[in-house]
Simulated assay, not measured.
Amino acid sequence: MDADVVRAVNDLTARWAREFPQGNTVASGLGLWPLLAILATAADEPGRAELAAAAGVDASAGSQQALELVQAIDGSDDLHAALGVWVSEQLKLAESFDTVMPAPLVGALTGNASVDKPKLDAWAAEHTDNLIREMPIQVTPDLMLVLASALSLKTTWAAPFKEMVRRFYDGPWSGGSWRWLERVDGDLDAVRRYEHPGAAWLTVVTVPGDADVDVLLGIGQPQVPQADVLAALIETAAQPTDGVPGSQLISQGEPGSDVAPGATVGETTAPRPDLKLSLPSFNVEAEHDLLELSELFGLGAVTTDPGAHGHFSAISPTPLAVGQAKQKVLARFFATGFEAAAVTAVGLMRTAMPTNQARRLEVTLDRPFGFVAVLRESRLPIVAGWVETPTEPGD
């Protein structure tokens, strides 16, 4: 897999993570990145440059890199991906369409929501193993093209957790009972402590799946903002052997002492040191309107009124603009494994065609104004004055 593309996806994800709302949420930069890369290749300036910068690609290569990334992902044991394009029956395609839109043409849009929406939803369900059953886009008569990606991940833990119920009597979760997961194994170095600018100390735990996926869990010091912890975790994911490993942390303090955020030295009757990991099981779902962060994703220019020529002349001579961009995503962490899915969709909309109309000059004197009377030929002023307020009330 292209290292530059991986870095670009990581960068996009980290920037997005800094904008996450407080509380439970989940998003997939990987689901969005191929769409931005394809749109960068298809867009006219200035949208082309904005999209390329947001995706971190050379616009001329974005479509091909997006296709190669999705193909590489789909070769994974646990992770699968798909791209799809639906085009309106009313849309005339440019000759360059096939070169800028590498995703397979899945079907046609009729403009009838009762016909089109079930087809889009069925594709989302098929390519997420039924984890997501709805395409996050609204079908309208002006919807000319839908570009979508789907991701699905299902992995089983190499070592399962024990499941129990735990009640908290203090701390931020006090007063609640939660479904809780615990396991003990001998891999101390699955834990690492990082020092990160802006996030101070960060503890990262790698939970390996039984095939080709790991899940990283990160916890920072209590005073560090959520945005900084998430961004640091994404950055450290690219540096799996950096930081201080657990095999060193365990010797840095006496039993009962903290050696990293969320990490304390304890005692065991086992014949050798081991690692006990405990956390709540979780099921997080979210839907994102990507246009709320249009500047972050390079969608600022291509969402504006494109005028007579549109933003995507390489797709169609019909004036088109991005009118919708959304993502539905979920993640579940449970005793025996982890699963996640994301469907991301961008809708290109037809914009109003300009019409030729006679011009009109409109002048309105609705505030104080002056006046002058002159002789026509000599332009000699006769009287001049100023109207501060109207003098004749209406009946």
Rank of each mutant, 00 (worst) to 15 (best):
P172I: 09
A125D: 12
H127T: 08
E19V: 06
L361H: 09
G107A: 12
P136D: 09
T351N: 06
Q138G: 10
T364F: 09
L105F: 01
V372G: 09
R376L: 05
A37Q: 04
Q65H: 14
S60V: 08
F282D: 05
N130E: 14
A66W: 07
K117Y: 01
K117M: 00
T25D: 09
L151S: 02
D274C: 12
L249Y: 02
W180I: 00
V213R: 00
I137P: 00
T128Y: 02
F333H: 12
Q64P: 03
N112L: 13
R376Y: 10
P21Y: 03
I234V: 14
T389V: 12
A108Q: 14
W86A: 01
Y194L: 07
G310V: 12
V57P: 01
L69K: 07
H288G: 08
N283I: 05
E195V: 15
P368M: 04
P225D: 15
W180D: 00
L279D: 09
S313R: 15
Q226I: 02
P368Y: 02
P273R: 02
A125G: 15
R15M: 03
L290C: 05
P381Q: 14
Q226S: 11
D74N: 15
A384K: 13
F297T: 09
L131W: 00
D98C: 01
R7N: 11
K326A: 11
L51R: 00
F312I: 07
G31R: 01
V70P: 00
T203P: 00
L279P: 05
T355H: 10
A113L: 00
S177W: 05
S378R: 10
G23C: 10
A17K: 10
D274A: 07
A43R: 07
A40P: 02
Q22E: 13
V146P: 15
T236Y: 08
E285H: 13
Q239S: 06
V383D: 06
D142F: 09
D78P: 02
L249G: 07
D212T: 01
T155F: 01
E19F: 11
A345R: 02
A125K: 13
P172M: 08
A159S: 13
A17G: 08
V100F: 07
K328Y: 02
L216N: 11
V329R: 06
P34W: 06
V372P: 01
G29S: 12
T389C: 02
V184R: 12
P225Y: 12
A263V: 15
A231V: 11
E195P: 03
S63Q: 06
L35F: 02
T140M: 12
D58G: 03
G246S: 06
A211I: 00
T351R: 11
G62E: 10
E295I: 09
G394P: 00
G107D: 10
A158E: 14
D258T: 14
E377N: 13
H311L: 06
A148C: 01
V224Q: 00
P368K: 05
G298Q: 10
T391W: 09
A159C: 03
L30P: 08
E287A: 13
V5K: 02
S63R: 08
L30N: 03
V139E: 05
T156Y: 10
V363L: 15
E45V: 06
V383Q: 05
F161Q: 01
I219W: 03
D214P: 04
L67Y: 07
E392D: 11
P255D: 05
M349K: 11
S149D: 13
A27N: 01
R166C: 04
N356V: 15
D142M: 04
L279V: 15
E392L: 15
